[in-house]
């Protein structure tokens, strides 16, 4: 059976001591009738509102930066509607330019979102007991925040799998609404300010990524991983064309982490 895991908002994994969690978890699903009701959707939606407000801030930042990176408001909104993944959307903006590095953007998106594989897998106790259509529809809306809330419900023995969909829809609503506000705001700033570098907006990406990075800090074990990522990225930046240094740095950090943790 899958070990219960929990992700923090920033997408990092905390492994629980399995002896404590797996037993009540197993017992809760001995009598395993899982439902998928409208009440479950509402319950998930409203319980997720506080987390949605946090996502709202990120969406505002995404909307503002998307316009600065050269997307139109429609394109920014489309990205939030169909991709719906904060970290990878922000990273895509960093790569955005007049000559779109399409392959690098798609690869980076994929690699950044690999953690979803584990998150989806961890929801198995609910998702294998409802119809595949409902499961795979719910998974479209799964985010770090709604997942964390849903897995808590599932492990505590709740039986309504629609909670995952409801909490995901809540995040979807806040993410798209804030993208709209941010991009509209940014559009007008662009219109009336001939040189946005006066505001330091060109520095905004770096500031956002530094802030996000500090949220990932989980202790000293991170130091060698990040050092390796920085070194490899720097070397690749000098040696290779385009933005490949991002993928190489990320892989180097991941491999370093894997070698040290196993």
């Amino acid at each position: 059976m899958l070990k219960a895991e929990q992700f923090t908002i920033s997408g990092d994994i905390i492994l629980h001591k399995p002896d404590k969690l797996s037993v009540p978890n197993k017992m809760a699903f001995q009598n395993n009738h899982v439902t998928f009701s409208r009440r479950g959707i509402m319950d998930g939606f409203f319980k997720c509102v506080p987390l949605g407000l946090g996502v709202f801030a990120y969406g505002l930042v995404f909307g503002i930066l998307a316009i600065q990176a050269g997307l139109s408001p429609v394109q920014a909104q489309l990205m939030s509607l169909v991709v719906f993944a904060g970290a990878s959307q922000l990273m895509a903006l960093e790569l955005w330019g007049p000559h779109l590095p399409v392959l690098t953007i798609i690869l980076t998106t994929f690699v950044v979102n690999l953690r979803h594989l584990l998150m989806g897998a961890a929801m198995r106790d609910w998702l294998v007991r409802i119809s595949p259509g409902k499961s795979y529809f719910s998974l479209y809306f799964m985010t770090d925040e709604s997942w964390a809330l849903s897995v808590k419900e599932m492990v505590s023995g709740k039986k309504d799998a629609a909670f995952l969909l409801g909490s995901g829809l809540c995040i979807y609503f806040f993410w798209n609404f804030s993208t709209f506000l941010g991009s509209t705001m940014s559009f007008w700033i662009d219109r009336y300010l001939s040189d946005p570098s006066v505001l330091g907006l060109d520095f905004a990406f770096t500031a956002v990524f530094i802030a996000l990075l500090t949220f990932f800090w989980k202790g000293k074990s991170q130091v060698p991983v990040w050092m390796m990522a920085a070194m490899v990225a720097w070397i690749a930046f000098i040696l290779l064309p385009g933005k490949w240094y991002i993928i190489f740095g990320g892989l180097a950090g991941g491999i370093t982490g894997a070698c040290r943790n196993a």
Binding site: M91, M228, G253, G254, G257
Partner: peptide
């Protein structure tokens, strides 16, 4: 997934941020 692979996945997002910021 093995613990090694989980650790790999767990460290990748923050490493990508480092790889963007440093250069």
């Amino acid at each position: 997934p093995s613990p090694r692979f989980r650790a790999f996945l767990a460290h990748m997002p923050s490493s990508i941020l480092v790889a963007i910021i440093v250069p």
